[in-house]
């Protein structure tokens, strides 16, 4: 009998550790895109609260309850990570299983923000982008989702089909930041 093994989007590409900044693949998880039906936002918010203990995130925000996280994902969209979406949400929102559609990587370390600054046109100062903040933006010409999950830790989601490109672009930026940090030759 043939046994099929699931492969993560960045299989064989990660982890990387360059100049004290690490890039690893986040564990594969169920991703559900939640898009409220027009006029059903209030009912969806109630259902989310009841089923998952999660509030609907405002633009640029995330909400969390235990392992479940709801990440704002664009206009009238959020993606649920870390929990299977309750069927009760389906009356108020379009639910789409996107587990296999995204590559999810985590960039960590003291220089991680400098790496992202080379790739994304975002204001990532602490006042503008604190822990828990999220943005849809571009990572070197690719549409991505960036979420600050800890003070020096950023989750980056890109299209699964472009996982290799995402890792490549991040790697080049990591190498650039590391090279800049080296003391000048004497």
């Amino acid at each position: 009998m043939i046994e099929l093994k699931p492969l993560s989007p960045a299989t064989g590409l990660l982890p990387l550790d360059i100049g004290g900044v690490t890039l690893r693949e986040a564990e594969m998880a169920a991703l559900t895109l939640i898009a409220p039906y027009m006029g059903r936002e209030a009912q969806l918010t109630e259902a989310l609260e009841a089923a998952h203990g999660l509030g609907w995130p405002q633009a640029g925000e995330t909400s969390a309850s235990g392992a479940a996280r709801l990440i704002w994902f664009g206009r009238k969209q959020a993606v649920l990570v870390g929990a299977a979406a309750s069927a009760k949400l389906a009356a108020h929102a379009a639910l789409t299983d996107q587990s296999d559609a995204w590559s999810c990587v985590v960039l960590e370390g003291a220089g991680a923000r400098d790496v992202l600054a080379r790739l994304a046109p975002l204001d990532m100062r602490d006042v503008a982008f604190p822990v828990g903040a999220t943005a849809r933006t571009e990572v070197f010409h690719m549409a991505c989702s960036i979420t600050r999950i800890e003070a020096q830790s950023w989750q980056i989601m890109g299209f699964r089909s472009m996982a290799k490109t995402l890792v490549h672009d991040l790697q080049v930026a990591m190498e650039g930041v590391a090279a800049r940090a080296k003391p000048a030759l004497t």
């Binding site: 633009a59 046109p121 204001d123 943005a135 849809r136």
Partner: peptide, 10 residues
């Protein structure tokens, strides 16, 4: 209005 001020390349 949703994302704040962003570079025009977006």
């Amino acid at each position: 209005p949703l994302c704040g001020e962003r570079d025009s390349r977006e």
